Amino acid sequence: MNTVSYLQLGLERIAIVISILLCLWITGVLLTHFQLIALIMNPYGITLMYFVLYLSALLIPQLLTQLGLWVLSAFKGIDYKIHFSPKLIAIISTIIIGLALSSLLIIMSSGWLYGFTESIATTILLIDLLIATGIAFYLHRRIRHWISVRLNHQP
């Protein structure tokens, strides 16, 4: 492997760690400053806002990594094509599918959460999130295999 390949692998791993830390930070903000009544009153706006925040936390570090590799390769005089590994695409798409499913389940269940106490409503929302996470993990291998076949890589 050449230096650019090692650099790409290292920077992609750093970007994944940064993405995970950003997602954990957003989750921390969500858990500490989130009011359940706001979700019940405006489920579409709240879930869409957090979906966009999570999506940007996942994609921006990866795109900045590819841009940085492109710039570094230009300084070294190497022709570099922007390339995403199938594993990385599968991880990001699985997380996005899990977030989308979570948003849909939250939006669907928020309509009938009016009569419950806040603790029961929170439990219902956590069950929704667990269901969506389970479906996303189930789909991860299928997505990774499909992307690998499409990109002619080994799974």
Rank of each mutant, 00 (worst) to 15 (best):
M1G: 11
N2E: 06
T3G: 11
L11A: 06
R13M: 07
I14E: 06
V17I: 13
I18L: 14
W25N: 10
W25F: 13
T27C: 07
T27K: 02
Q35F: 10
L36Y: 08
A38G: 02
P43K: 03
P43S: 11
Y50Q: 01
Y54P: 02
S56R: 06
L58A: 07
L59Y: 03
P61L: 07
P61S: 09
Q62H: 10
T65N: 09
L67P: 00
G68S: 12
L72Q: 09
A74I: 05
F75G: 15
K76A: 15
K76Q: 15
K76F: 15
G77P: 04
G77V: 04
I78S: 04
I78H: 13
K81Q: 10
K81M: 05
K87M: 08
I89L: 14
I92Q: 04
S93I: 02
T94Q: 03
G98W: 03
L101I: 15
S102N: 03
S102K: 04
L104W: 15
L105T: 03
I107E: 06
S110N: 14
G111K: 13
W112P: 00
L113K: 07
G115M: 11
F116H: 08
S119W: 09
I120N: 15
A121I: 03
T122S: 12
I127R: 11
L129S: 14
I135M: 07
I135W: 06
I135H: 02
A136E: 02
F137W: 10
H140C: 10
H140L: 15
R142S: 13
R142L: 14
R142A: 13
R144I: 01
W146L: 13
I147L: 08
R150I: 06
R150Y: 07
H153S: 11
Q154K: 11
